[in-house]
Nucleic acid binder design. Structure first.
Lengths: 212, 212
DNA sequence: TCATATATGGAACAATCGGTACATATATGA
DNA sequence: TCATATATGTACCGATTGTTCCATATATGA
């Protein structure tokens, strides 16, 4: 059953897509209402506020849309049907490819979407910080799972793996924006993962790998 | 010989220090002239513009001041009197400690000082991007030097080391701001450096280390 | 003493910020 | 047909943005 009232004359989903591109490349605060209305097809302020409520509310919707689409490169991290190492590798490689793709702004919206904020917009910063915290927890859980399953030894070198992966992941935003190529990030990830292998238990031996 | 004219009534150096703290924590665009004048002791617009010229000119001065002080944690990277591995280790550890110190805003001004910008302030972004490019070149030069001196083997795993260290370094800004502790970053660096050691040539053998 | 040079306080600038008011247009459901 | 509900266009809101103007204050050098 269709809704009553005059129908909207612009495509709300496409508008959110366009707003995402703006917020993604410029960040929350520098993106003005004028730019937003313009990228939605020069809609009026009345149309904007009727549809989205406020700039902040739109941003929150954009973040949700991002997490449901581009942000899904992080999905393997929480997929317990994957082997922990595989989950981490897929996450890092997927994120590297996504962040350096040319079809959209470089880097990660969750990392850079509100990195410059005046005090009054701290809630917006907190929204993204909370998501990053989820990522950190994801890496930690993955490593913990690998230790529990006997894939990783329980040693100091293993404990730092989550911080290494998280820091590298977040650093890719800066690199991708600065023009570092996808292949370079991929190669770096390959090398990074040898740190995992160095703490891995070789099946059967219960010890660390010999050729390393 | 002292300058002619009425003397300035506020301390210009302290003002730049205070402005640096503001730009560091909020970034270039969200920091307003009102905040800047306020942190300098409620000076008048006339005093501000007479002393600094413009907001952008002040920011450029602030960046220079930052590079000359806190930014000096990067100095070892260009110090050819240090062994390459030592130079990189000192750089990473120094930056980790600086970025997570409580006495000033967390993270790195060069990474986060203008990460959210409207198109009109692209020159400001470019200023910082240029400095980050210098850092990348520094890591590359360090690794190149180590290969030339025979400290590192010349292999694919060695080639990616600069990207790994640079990405990690830049990622620390996000981590420090999110409250990751200095000790965690330090431990991660210790582990990261084993990637160097894995590509290192053991003195006398000309091959890679045995215990690894 | 007086010209010159610089700094200051205060008022004001046009432009933009995010957001609102209100009358009008266009749909559905009764 | 008419009440209800939603969207739109236009005008406008006060606040803030970075910046400029100008008269005045205070120093140095001649």
């Amino acid at each position: 059953m269709a809704r009553t009232g005059r129908p909207r004359e612009f495509d709300r989903d496409r508008a959110i897509d366009a707003a995402m591109a703006l917020f993604w490349s410029q960040g929350y605060e520098p993106t003005s209402l004028t730019q937003l209305k313009s990228c939605m097809g020069n809609i009026s302020p009345a149309s904007f506020y009727a549809a989205f409520g406020s700039k902040e509310a739109l941003f929150r919707e954009v973040v949700q849309h991002y997490l449901a689409t581009y942000g899904q490169v992080m999905a393997p991290l929480g997929d317990e049907s994957l082997a922990p190492r595989d989950a981490i590798e897929r996450t890092l490689r997927g994120s590297a490819a996504m962040q350096s793709a040319r079809a959209h702004p470089c880097g990660c919206l969750i990392v850079a979407g509100a990195s410059n904020c005046s005090p009054e917009n701290e809630p917006v910063q907190a929204l993204l910080a909370k998501e990053r915290q989820r990522t950190r927890a994801g890496f930690r859980a993955c490593v913990k799972r690998a230790i529990a399953s006997g894939e990783l030894r329980d040693c100091p070198a293993t404990e730092v793996l989550p911080d290494i992966f998280t820091t590298f992941l977040h650093g890719m935003t800066c690199e991708a924006r600065d023009g570092v190529r996808s292949e370079n990030l991929e190669a770096a990830i390959t090398s990074l993962l040898t740190l995992w292998d160095a703490s891995a238990v070789v099946p059967g031996t219960g010890k660390h790998p010999k050729n390393f």
